[in-house]
């Protein structure tokens, strides 16, 4: 929250409109201001890419879970306690030596909130939304990810009903690692597809 300059009590027009909506909705019994604070706190501090990283790490060490995740990601992810609020279905897309997956929402900003939290600014901005489909290889290069020309890139366009989670490839040299340690290698960008899992130092 970025208002650090000294000022008298002034509400900018957007803040005033939000207050107005909050007043009307509270009076009509449609929202409870205390519940609004809980939702904000949840999305700011409790839900984030660590959830998704745990899903990926489990899929790396547990072949049965990986199979389940491939077949029915909504249920497999739900079994870890991560369920979407919007009734959306999840699909997990697995990177392989010859295929890299990249997720976008060209429509607006649909994103797997339950496993990744809220999307980063660039995910919601027009350049990424338009260019990820047209020139995925170029976009990945801007993220510092240059894939071999032989690697196929599949782009998945999210909707309100269906959201995607990329399962990156497990880095080499992690064969005896615990699930917890592995989860630390799984970045948010790796699960969107604009990056890879971290390589062990």
């Amino acid at each position: 929250m970025s208002h650090d300059h000294d000022h008298d009590n002034e509400l900018d027009p957007f803040a005033a409109r939000v207050r107005a909506l909050e007043t009307i909705l509270t009076q009509k019994g449609l929202i409870d201001p205390a519940a609004i604070d809980v939702i904000v706190d949840t999305y700011e501090t409790k839900i984030g890419p660590r959830n998704g990283a745990k899903v990926v790490a489990k899929a790396w060490v547990d072949p049965d879970f990986a199979t389940w995740l491939k077949r029915d990601a909504t249920a497999a992810i739900g079994s870890l306690g991560y369920t979407g609020r919007q009734g959306e279905h999840m699909q997990a897309v697995f990177n392989a030596a010859d295929t890299h997956n990249l997720v976008v929402c060209t429509l607006c900003s649909c994103y797997p909130w339950s496993v990744l939290g809220l999307p980063p600014v660039w995910y919601k901005a027009p350049p990424y939304r338009s260019r990820a489909v047209i020139d995925p290889r170029g976009v990945l290069e801007e993220f510092g990810l240059t894939l071999p020309a032989t690697t196929k890139i599949r782009v998945w366009d999210s909707t309100a009903e269906l959201r995607y989670l990329v399962v990156p490839m497990r880095p080499k040299g992690t064969e005896d690692w615990s699930e917890e340690r592995l989860a630390d290698l799984v970045t948010r960008d790796a699960m969107i597809g604009t990056g890879l899992a971290r390589v062990p130092a």
């Binding site: 929250m1 939000v18 929202i31 609004i36 904000v40």
Partner: peptide, 19 residues
Amino acid sequence: APVFAEPWQATAFAMTVAL
């Protein structure tokens, strides 16, 4: 960058989820 730049953005987001 933080997902919400100003408090009103967080409130607008949360009201939508609640509704």
